[in-house]
């Protein structure tokens, strides 16, 4: 895995942290690695922590949607956690409501929802 973004196994989910200065190529690599690990480790969920992201554009928005779609095909729910207010406003303004993802306030919140099923 290149760069600063990381994937960790937490309970029965994969925690993916995106870093502030994540590059486009890095995100593409991340998608590759992530899909491999979801299949191999048979997890129930993917938790995408974007609390470090201060700026989003349509590309990042699409990547989140793609990760969610890909995870669902591999039988894992995607939770987006830690979105900043400014990021939420920007995504809404861009018209990216991310209907395919679930959202949670924090990692704890997401994990408890995953446990509940």
């Amino acid at each position: 895995m290149s760069g600063k973004s990381s994937i960790h196994l937490v309970e029965n989910a994969l925690l993916v942290s995106l870093h502030d200065d994540v590059t486009d190529t890095e995100i593409m690599d991340l998608q590759d690695t992530l899909s491999g690990r979801i299949a191999k480790e048979d997890v129930r969920g993917v938790v995408l922590d974007i609390s470090a992201l201060e700026i989003v554009d349509t590309f990042v928005g699409r990547v989140i949607a793609q990760i969610a779609g890909m995870s669902r095909l591999l039988a894992a729910e995607t939770y987006v956690v830690g979105m900043r207010p400014a990021v939420a406003v920007t995504l809404v303004e861009l018209g990216m409501y991310l209907p395919e993802t679930r959202t949670a306030l924090s990692l704890t919140h997401a994990l408890s929802q995953l446990r509940r099923g």
Binding site: V80, V81, G82, M83, P85, V87, A88, V89, L91, V92, E93, Y97, L98, T103, A104, L105, S106, H109, A110
Partner: peptide, 12 residues
């Protein structure tokens, strides 16, 4: 509806 969407994105 936009406010509601933003709230959902925040995880609430």
């Amino acid at each position: 509806l936009r406010a509601a969407a933003a709230v959902r994105l925040m995880g609430a």
